[in-house]
Structure formats: structure tokens, C-alpha cells
Design a protein around this nucleic acid. Structure first.
Lengths: 144, 144
DNA sequence: GGTTGTTAGTTACATTTTCAACTATTACCA
DNA sequence: TGGTAATAGTTGAAAATGTAACTAACAACC
């Protein structure tokens, strides 16, 4: 098993990004899955609602770059657990406004604390300059 | 939909990494899916075999950080399409050595050309220094 | 030599995700 | 006004993934 081809996977950005994303997600998954039995789609929706306070499912799709069926199902499950509420828009009843309940907000605050801690650990592998560059670059790459 | 919380998702690394990985993967996915109906697991296995020439499924699991069932199924599908061959190890028949067929290699070469081109496009968004840092950092984060 | 443990890989089943079709509501425009 | 198009969101079936249990082959130890 010696390398033959001159193409180096470790330079191919989609591959590298996936690898890093996968690994950094796994440890955080243990937290939200272990504590609340949540899925990745669910914590993402929860976090967006906590941060933006009031959004429609469409808003979340765009911000989080998630497909609408994923969002729809995550919202359903969060609603079942009483982490969020829906209110149809009065003027355009195709829209539903989503907000967290106080219970949902409590879960968020707990997870946020863990997220911060989790990030600290990851960042210990990096210099402050690397962190700055990384964040800037990832944000740039996230604009499609 | 205005931001309320002081926690910025755009600083949370697992989130950022996922977002960037997702977007950068999508355009490449169009290529391998569109041209060969392949899945992400499959192009990854194909690329590993092309680069390392001869590996067992276990080797691929380790290099690519993929679960063995994913690898097992990707190998099955690649075999069905005659992209790879299996040969049981003579000395230890629990191992199977995997190699690409010439057909598999041709597919790889085609995809590799697209991968390079795809990477060029991504990198146009970044400076050479950012690219260097990004690769280094992603490799560091990929070590679990 | 036979029992127990380990390893490589597969399979079965449950959970998630994807894709396409669907409903309900509003917008557009002749 | 009426008819078509567009939009927000949901649902069902198919595909993919994750988890755990499984087989087959070898190792180690008594």
C-alpha cells in the first residue's frame, strides 16, 4: 500500500473539508445525542431559532443550507418535544413563524455552553492566526 | 429575523466546517453522480484504490476514516460495475486485496481531471497563503 | 488438539435522508 | 375575474446510513 499516483487526496478541498467536518462533528454529536437524543438537523434548527429568535422554515433552509424536507422534519420533532412553537402568519398563511419555547431555550443554552467548550478543544490544535484565517476562509467557501 | 444571541454560529467550527464541506461537495457530486451514478462513499474508495493501488477494505477504512460497512457496500457496488477486483490473500484468507480494473482506472482518471478543475475554481476564492493555511489546518483537524 | 479470543468483512434491521409528488395559499396577468 | 404560475411546507416511497449481530478465518493459550 504505497502511494502511486501523483494526485494527493490531502490537497483536494472537498475531501479535506469533509474529513475535518466529519471528525469535528462526531464529538459534538455525542453531546446533543447523548443528552437530548437529538439529530444533527435538529440542533441546527434549534440554534438558528435561538439566535434569530423568529424565523420561518424557509429562512432556516437558506441560512443553514438545508433542504426543506430536512427542516420540516426537524421542526416536527422539535415541536413534539415542546422545544418550539408554530404560528401561522396572519397576512400570508403559507408562512409559519417558529419560535423556541422556554424549554427549548434552556436546551439551547445548555448545548451552547458545550459547543463553546467543544470549540475551545478544537482550537487548541491551532494558533490564533490559523483560527482567524480558517474562519474567514470557511465563511468565504460557504457562500455558494 | 435579526440576530439576538451573542453566540455566533459562524464561529462554531463544526458548523462552519460542515457548511463549507457541504457546499464544496455539492458541485463535485454533480460530476461523479451525473457521469457515473456514483455515491460519495464510492468515489472515495475509487480514489484511494487508484492512489494506493492495492489495499484491503480495512486499509481504506483507516485512511479514509470510513466505517467498515460503508466501505463494504461501496466495494460491492464498484465490483458490480467492474471498477475493481478482489483477490483473497493467500496466507490469510480473511484479507481481500482490492485493485482497480482498467475500466475503474479510466473512470478515476476522468474524475481526477474534474476534481483538479473543481479545486481550481474553489481556490480562486482564496489567496495562496490562505490555501496553504487551510490545507495544513484541515489536515491537523482530521487527526482524531 | 480444543477452547477462547481476535480480526476482516458481511448482513439484517432500524433510522435518516433523498426525491418526487402533493396540498394549500398567494401572485401574476390576459 | 379566472386561469396559470409560483411559493411554503408536508408526505410517502426509495435509497442510503448506522448499529449490532453475525460468519469465517486465524491466533493464542492451556
Amino acid at each position: 500500500m504505497t502511494q502511486k499516483d501523483d494526485f494527493d487526496l490531502r490537497e483536494f478541498l472537498p475531501y479535506l473539508l469533509n474529513q475535518a467536518a466529519e471528525i469535528s462533528s462526531q464529538s459534538f454529536q455525542r453531546i446533543y445525542k447523548g443528552r437530548y437524543g437529538m439529530l444533527r438537523t435538529e440542533w441546527r434548527v434549534l440554534f438558528h431559532l435561538a439566535i434569530f429568535e423568529r424565523m420561518t422554515a424557509k429562512d432556516i433552509c437558506e441560512k443553514a443550507i438545508m433542504h426543506k424536507t430536512k427542516v420540516s422534519r426537524a421542526v416536527q420533532r422539535l415541536e413534539q418535544r415542546r422545544y418550539l412553537q408554530r404560528k401561522p402568519d396572519e397576512k400570508d398563511r403559507r408562512h409559519e413563524w417558529l419560535t423556541l419555547t422556554s424549554q427549548g431555550r434552556a436546551v439551547y443554552e445548555d448545548l451552547r455552553a458545550h459547543a463553546r467548550q467543544h470549540d475551545q478543544v478544537l482550537m487548541q490544535k491551532l494558533s490564533t492566526e490559523e483560527i482567524t484565517v480558517l474562519r474567514r476562509v470557511l465563511n468565504a467557501l460557504s457562500q455558494p
